[in-house]
Write a protein that binds this DNA or RNA. Structure first.
Lengths: 130, 130
DNA sequence: GACCCTATGTGTAAATTACATGTAATGTCA
DNA sequence: TGACATTACATGTAATTTACACATAGGGTC
């Protein structure tokens, strides 16, 4: 029986919520991809580091294809050209849908955490803190 | 520009937390795969449905390979043979690690949700409920 | 010119998830 | 008794997601 991961799996977030996070940022005002990446970082667990850049650009392309966001090339300034994205009305609707999905995920996760504390309470693992 | 998903992505959970959920259940006592699947269902968002059965068996095999859980064949009763799993000490440690990962995910998600309400508050989308 | 930083992007492998299917034991009901 | 359902475990493989490597390009600095 061969298993690839020897001891513990990777517990980093897998960026499933990059999409709503981008929409939230764009709901606040237009931005370009490179900037979004930086502003995205603090929205995820601190140990996660910045999300993958290539993934962000691909996400932005997909969202534009969906009509969730729209883009224009920014007025050429110093440095390489920037593509500036803004959220559409349809994007605001999508964001509202995401909010309810996130809320139910939140509820599920807190239930799981509660179950953990119940299970851990009577055992060896110290749980007096938290 | 061809995008595969036309309007909105699939917001169902992608079972990223099946592993800690299984460990939580097994921390409560031994169980077999088919039973775990049923007891897993209410730990996820209600609209998600039961997690994929084949995925659960594969997860159990991987966890056993990792030493996180261990199994024995149950005393033969009526119906097909059951493999009964129980959590190991190393599994309890892994569960504790998961708990902190979940806690930080929880924090990130609630931050995201808060950002959504901030963004939504001044706009068209009615948010008086929630 | 060599090198770094910003900025956008493609190519592709690896990992994860979903769906289809196969097996076996037992029970039911006509 | 044989077609069908239910429980239970398992493999095969397609589809999707994520990660990593790399390419391109403008501009600054040394």
């Amino acid at each position: 029986m061969e298993s690839k991961r020897i001891v513990h799996p990777d517990r980093r977030p897998h960026w499933r919520f990059t999409e709503p996070a981008v929409l939230v940022l764009l709901a606040d005002g237009p931005a370009h991809g490179y900037e979004l990446r930086a502003r995205l970082t603090p929205l995820f667990p601190a140990d996660a580091g910045p999300p993958d850049a290539s993934g962000i650009y691909r996400l932005l392309h997909r969202l534009e294809g969906d009509g969730t966001i729209r883009s224009t090339w920014a007025e050429p300034g110093p440095g390489p050209a920037r593509r500036v994205y803004e959220i559409t009305d349809s994007g605001r609707d999508a964001l509202a849908e995401w909010a309810s999905a996130i809320a139910s995920e939140l509820q599920a996760l807190s239930g799981l955490l509660a179950a953990f504390y119940r299970a851990g309470a009577g055992r060896g693992t110290s749980q007096a803190d938290a």
